[in-house]
Each structure stands twice: as C-alpha cells, then as structure tokens.
Design a protein around this nucleic acid. Structure first.
Length: 288
DNA sequence: ACCCAGGGTCGTC
DNA sequence: GACGACCCTGGG
C-alpha cells in the first residue's frame, strides 16, 4: 500500500500527548521528534502537530481522510463539551485545563475488549508490552519506511492459540480469560456486530459482563473507548476512586469508599458526560 | 534483598 | 456482599 497524507488546519481539542497518554489506548508511541506512531485496523499512521496544524502520514487501508475523521472522532465538538463540564465546578475546570487536548478515539470493539481484559490489575508499560508481543506474533505485518509494524490480531488469528502460549507471552493469569473470551466471540455466543448496532446500553453492558475477564470497570472502558462510544458510563479504577475521594468524598481511607457513592456523585454532577469527565479527572490525577 | 502496586476479576464463603 | 488469590514487572 502507498503512503497517504492528510492535514487539518485550525485544530481544536487536539493535543498529541493528551490523546495518546490519557490511558484510553496502548498502541501509540512517541517518536524522537515528538510525533506519535500507532497502528489501528490495518493502518499505520504518524501524527504530528506543528503550530496549529495536525499532519497525518502513513499507510491506510482506505482513504486517509475518512479513516482519520472516524478514528479521531473529528466530527464531535469537544469545545462545547468542555465548556459544559467546566461550568460544573472548579475541579472539572482545572482538570480540563490540564487535559484540554483530549479526544476519545473510536477504537475497534474487538481490540478494545481484549486490550482492557489485559489491563486488569496491570500497569501501562506492561500492558503495552503484552499487546505488542501479541500483535507481533499473531497479527499481520505492515512495512512502512523500512520499519515493521503489526496489526492487532483478529479473533480468527487467535483461534488456535493455547492458554499456555498466552502464558508464555507474559499474560499471567489473564491467559485463560483471553482464551475463553476469544472463543465466546468466535462461537458467536457474543455477537459483536449485533452489539455494535444495539442502542440499549444496559443490554450491551450485560453482554460484555458475560465475557471472561470483563467486570464492571473493564466493561465501562469498552463502552467508552471503543466504537460503542457511550459517554454516560463512568469507569471506576484506583485512580478515579482516589481523585473522586480527594475532591468530593474526603474519606480517610480511599479504598473504603463505596462504589455506589462514586457512581451517584458522577451521575448527578456529570450526567450523560460522565465518561468524558472521568477521563479528564483520571488523566489529571495520574499525570499532574 | 524485599516489598509494593498497577486502568480488576473470579471463585468462595 | 466481603475477602483473598492471581501473573508479572518496575520502582522504592
């Protein structure tokens, strides 16, 4: 495939670091020149920002403009969303100032499911390492500018992988979960195409929870970060628990904070934008 | 060397 | 509904 290029002038809400390091994705890596390279679908892209221009170059399966607009959620007005959230309170305002360039990517549903199963009780460097090894071993190679990149393996490509092989890749106790979920999806016990079309968030969440290795937190991440795109969910992990306790609850022992209480506050304060609010708070608390 | 924690989930009680 | 166990790795 041939290299393509696409430029956006006058970008708003588009900072590379904010988008790629806010915890939603695991396959984008910073380069020496400050640009980022990532693989998604059968695309390998370099993204850089110069002044107010965003420049995309790389290998795209389809048209690069269409691909980029979809993946980077370019048709959504983040300025409006940020204004609404900023008006809620000073905490939101501060966290949004910090993560002003965040956009929520439209990541492939299957890849997001597997990636966040791997994320359970794990740290980001190790999660990234596992996903790279998985892609290198079972994905498809794409060559660009003398470098090799690997697509995230499809369910079909993982069909014959054994639990032991996962363990050897360093997945740890998540090996069996990956195996079981892959086969539930291959056997259409859970139909991802149907799920993608289902407007009933409660129902979709139930289906996700039936997958091995998918609990409440992972299910919410999948709902928020994949093409399912549900902004009303509020994934609660250690960092979100921490920041919500610091800002609104003030319990001496954050680990004792009730999840229901966090959900209640999130819902009352942020409503149908809870997922976005979560992401600004998470990024701010973890990085700043 | 040792301990701890990391974008939690699962089985058991 | 609470509790411990779970694989592995980097950092203190």
């Amino acid at each position: 495939m041939k290299e393509q290029k696409y430029i956006i002038k006058d970008s708003n809400s588009f900072e590379l670091k904010d988008i790629f390091e806010c915890g939603q994705c695991f396959r984008w890596n910073e380069q020496d020149d400050g640009s980022y390279i990532g693989v998604f679908g059968e695309n390998v892209l370099n993204v850089r920002k110069i002044n107010n221009e965003i420049i995309f170059t790389g290998i795209c399966k389809e048209n690069i403009k269409t691909t980029v607009e979809e993946y980077f959620d370019l048709n959504r007005n983040y300025e409006n969303i940020k204004n609404k959230l900023s008006n809620i309170d000073e905490n939101m305002k501060k966290s949004i100032e910090y993560g002003k360039g965040i956009r929520i990517l439209n990541q492939d549903l299957w890849e997001t499911i597997i990636s966040f199963i791997i994320s359970a009780n794990n740290n980001i460097p190790r999660i990234k390492g596992i996903i790279e090894r998985l892609s290198k071993k079972y994905g498809k190679e794409i060559n660009w500018k003398g470098n090799k990149y690997y697509t995230f393996p499809t369910a079909k490509q993982l069909k014959d992988v054994t639990v032991q092989e996962y363990r050897e890749l360093g997945l740890g106790f998540r090996d069996i979960r990956l195996y079981e979920t892959t086969h539930m999806i291959l056997d259409k016990k859970i139909n991802l195409e149907e799920m993608q079309k289902n407007p009933d968030t409660i129902q979709v969440r139930e289906q996700l929870l039936s997958l091995s290795g998918v609990g409440p937190k992972v299910a919410d991440c999948i709902l928020l970060f994949s093409t399912l795109k549900r902004f009303e969910v509020f994934p609660i992990d250690v960092w979100v628990r921490r920041v919500m306790n610091d800002l609104y609850i003030h319990n001496q022992d954050e680990t004792k904070v009730n999840k229901k209480e966090i959900e209640k506050i999130a819902n009352e304060k942020f409503g149908d934008l809870a997922g976005l609010a979560q992401q600004y708070l998470f990024y701010w608390r973890r990085e700043a």
